[in-house]
Design a protein around this nucleic acid. Structure first.
Length: 752
DNA sequence: GCAAGGTC
């Protein structure tokens, strides 16, 4: 029998072929798509890896013009499937012609079932006689695979259909709401306003937290602290940690002022085991990566690249328990060739190597761990940082626990009770391998009951209650995980999307005016998309579809009816929504006040690029040119030269403040680097379309003299001219290196 | 120029 095996991705295909053939598989290619062939039990096998979904679910092309299609009409349009991976499809067809049987061996989950079905549908349209089977396995181990292929099941079309229901619902709600909001606010092109089942509740989380912080009213309180001394200085707090009443605090302090001796009334100490951390799954990895100063999206990008190049295991996993098939000792031995060989050697000295286990145990993939040893020479920059964190996390999970000494002491000072809590690491264990975790230690000396302790001083300090913290990006990933929003593969991208749309900004995402306005509109008219419940209901419905208690059609129709109601409510208040959205976007995009008419200056797009225009156009025709590259935001105040607003231009890594009028003296002075030796004009520092900096003559296009300057390091100028060619000399200042001076002119003889 | 879900 000729068997075609269909896998979720090439990596899985290669491994499955390897394991089923006892490494006798042959790798082949068709239009650069790899596949694998071997013989097993007298049958011929071909294994193909897909690339996740090979078709895209979308509306027919003729509905692409937003202005020509009413959203009401769109709700009832039946989407189609478009092939997105044509090379894989042609390989499928070529092998379909050859095969008698197809075995779906994609990931054993809902989306995997649909990915398999998509490939099968393509096969069956041309070769309806192929027998279809499903291999169900939850890890890519030899024994599981053998079992699965010896006991083939049927493809679960109901499960796949439940995933299709999700696709239909997500597209309908996403497209209808996105188009309605964008059209209503007049935001077209890449300025569109989006909404969706996952992104909108996530945005609402951020906005809600912002509101909590804005509405927070701090409550003042006082605390009284004694500085004691035995062997060393340590602190003791009054048993009332927060004293709300100022006069009571005052009285207490007066009572204690001048006290010289504290009497120990209680002392206890014990040691506590500090257990090592559990293995990394995607959520925990991304959340930890915040400590590397990386956004989840950047961390994921680096992890994917490490995975592609064979340094780490699959980075998209929910699992926090290593499979029993992973030999921890030999894995550590293998990793000894890495930068951290010394630490790994220490860990290997344990008689027994045992790994910690996290709470989540799934069988999709193993937790993230390093599969190949790397040194700093192999990996640079952020890649190394991410690899090191994954390596150290793996080391920690197989390291001995630490020990902490916990001391509690209570004192009597003039009839008042004071308390000290000590926490000290006495055995580092795993902690020394993991610099990302630094416990806060406080020392309390060994004491005896009734022992008298010297008081250095007693302090009273005023403090106040604090609002909750903003979500860090890592914290947001954890919250989404908890609420079931998105998946391990999509959460980082969803957060990135909120940034890209301008709904949030800052390192810890904070809502912008437009983000706030969008959430407000959705809460008023489409409450369900702004809440995580929509996902929860959808999950329940999908389960019912898979179990045949509901049909996909029924679920989709009900959802469409709900969407219709939401849309009519939105339409009823369209004018209010328009006002609200426009106002917030105008304020957000504002670069300041127009000096001609007092209205708002905003960035406009033209065919050739961008410029600043007045919101009062056509009544006010005031415009300004903008630099070609960089992100432009409102600056701080007005230009001292001409009174127009200042702007701030952001480039990767730095920013500069200029007058909105780049031809104004203020802007020119800021960019002035010397005199052009060709025409006597001014050499200004400029940026190319790609944000590359260079020196250009202010008389362009009359004079086209330019000089390249270094892209890294700080560049300074000191009015010196090159003695040879007259170009302004450039001083380059790089971290850890002596500053050096150079002539930027590539044609200059003095260049060295 | 729409969503979210796979994967590169």
């Amino acid at each position: 029998m000729k068997t075609l095996v269909i896998c979720e991705k090439n990596n899985a295909a290669s491994r499955i072929a390897f394991l089923l053939s006892d490494s006798k598989q042959k790798r082949k290619q068709f239009h650069k798509v790899p596949y694998y062939e071997f013989e097993r039990g007298g049958d011929d096998y071909t294994v193909i890896g897909l690339r996740g979904h090979i078709v895209e679910f979308d509306y027919p092309k003729k509905y692409n013009q937003w202005s020509k299609v009413d959203e009401d009409e769109l709700i009832d349009v039946e989407p189609e499937k478009f092939i997105t991976e044509s090379r894989i499809v042609s390989l499928l067809k070529k092998k379909g012609k050859w095969a008698d049987r197809a075995i779906v061996a994609t990931d054993y989950d809902r989306e995997g079932e649909l990915i398999g079905l998509e490939a099968i549908r393509i096969l069956l349209t041309e070769f309806p006689d192929i027998e279809v089977k499903r291999a169900k396995f939850s890890s890519l181990s030899k024994s599981e695979l053998e079992d699965a292929f010896n006991d083939l099941k049927e493809l679960d079309t109901k499960l796949a259909e439940s995933a299709e229901a999700r696709q239909e619902i997500d597209l309908a709600w996403g497209a209808v709401l996105t188009r309605f909001l964008s059209k209503t606010a007049g935001r077209y092109g890449k300025n569109f306003i989006s909404a969706g089942r996952v992104q909108s509740p996530t945005l609402a989380l951020i906005i809600d937290r912002d509101e909590e912080i804005d509405d927070f009213v701090p409550d003042p309180f006082w605390k009284i602290e004694a500085l004691l001394h035995k062997d060393f200085e340590f602190k003791a707090n009054h048993e009332e940690k927060r004293i709300w009443d100022s006069s009571r605090a005052e009285k207490l302090f007066e009572k204690l002022d001048g006290a010289e001796e504290a009497v120990t009334t209680l002392f206890s100490e014990k040691t506590k085991t500090v257990w090592p951390l559990s293995p990394f799954n995607t959520t925990q990895f991304l959340s930890e990566a915040t400590k590397l100063n990386m956004s989840p999206a950047q961390a994921m990008k680096n992890a994917e690249s490490l995975y592609q190049d064979g340094w780490i295991s699959y980075p998209r996993t929910e699992n926090t328990v290593y499979p029993s098939s992973l030999d921890l000792r030999s894995q550590l031995e293998l990793l000894q060739d890495s930068e951290l060989y010394k630490e790994i050697a220490e860990i290997l000295q344990q008689k027994k190597i045992k790994a910690t286990r996290g709470k989540k145990q799934t069988t999709d993939h193993p937790p993230i761990y390093p599969i190949k040893a790397a040194t700093k020479k192999d990996l640079k920059g952020m890649l190394w940082k991410v690899y090191e964190m994954i390596l150290r996390r793996f080391m920690v999970t197989v390291s001995p626990p630490g020990k902490a000494l916990i001391r509690k002491a209570e004192f009597d000072i003039r009839g008042e009770t004071f308390k000290s809590d000590g926490y000290q690491i006495v055995e580092e264990g795993w902690i020394k391998y993991y610099p990302y975790y630094r416990p806060r230690e406080t020392s309390v000396p060994e004491l005896k009951k009734d022992e008298k302790v010297e008081i250095k001083k007693v302090d009273i300090t005023e403090d106040e209650t604090k609002p909750p913290n903003r979500y860090s990006q890592g914290g947001l990933i954890r919250e989404m995980d908890k609420l079931g929003l998105g998946t391990k593969s999509t959460r980082h991208a969803i957060i990135q999307k909120l940034y890209d749309r301008g709904f949030v900004s800052g390192k810890s995402p904070t809502g912008t005016l437009s983000g706030k306005a969008v959430v407000q509109t959705l809460k008023a008219h489409a409450d369900m998309v702004a809440k995580p419940e929509m996902t929860r209901t959808l999950e329940e419905d999908m389960e019912k579809i898979a179990e045949e208690d509901l049909t996909k059609e029924k679920v989709a129709d009900e959802s469409r009816d709900m969407l219709k109601e939401v849309l009519s409510s939105l339409k009823k208040d369209k004018e209010d929504i328009r006002k609200e959205l426009r106002e917030s976007f105008r304020e957000q995009d504002s670069l300041g006040e127009c000096p001609e008419c007092g209205d708002t200056l905003v960035i406009r797009k033209s065919r050739t690029g961008r410029f600043v225009g007045c919101n009062n156009y056509p009544d006010c025709k005031n415009t300004y040119n903008l630099p070609r590259s960089g992100t432009v935001k409102a600056g701080d105040g007005k230009c001292p030269e001409c009174g127009a607003p200042k702007i701030r231009v952001y480039h990767k890594g730095d920013s500069e403040e200029l007058c909105i009028d780049i031809n104004c003296k203020f802007s020119k002075d800021k960019r002035f680097r010397g005199i052009c030796p060709e025409c006597g004009g001014e050499m200004l520092e400029m940026r190319s379309y790609r944000s590359k900096r260079f020196l250009g003559c202010s008389n362009y296009p009359k004079c086209d003299n330019t000089y390249p300057i270094p892209q890294t390091g700080n560049v300074e100028y000191d009015d010196k001219k090159c003695p040879d060619c007259g170009a302004p000399m450039v001083n380059i200042i790089k971290k850890g290196k002596k500053p050096w001076e150079l002539c930027p002119n590539p044609d200059c003889d003095k260049k060295d």
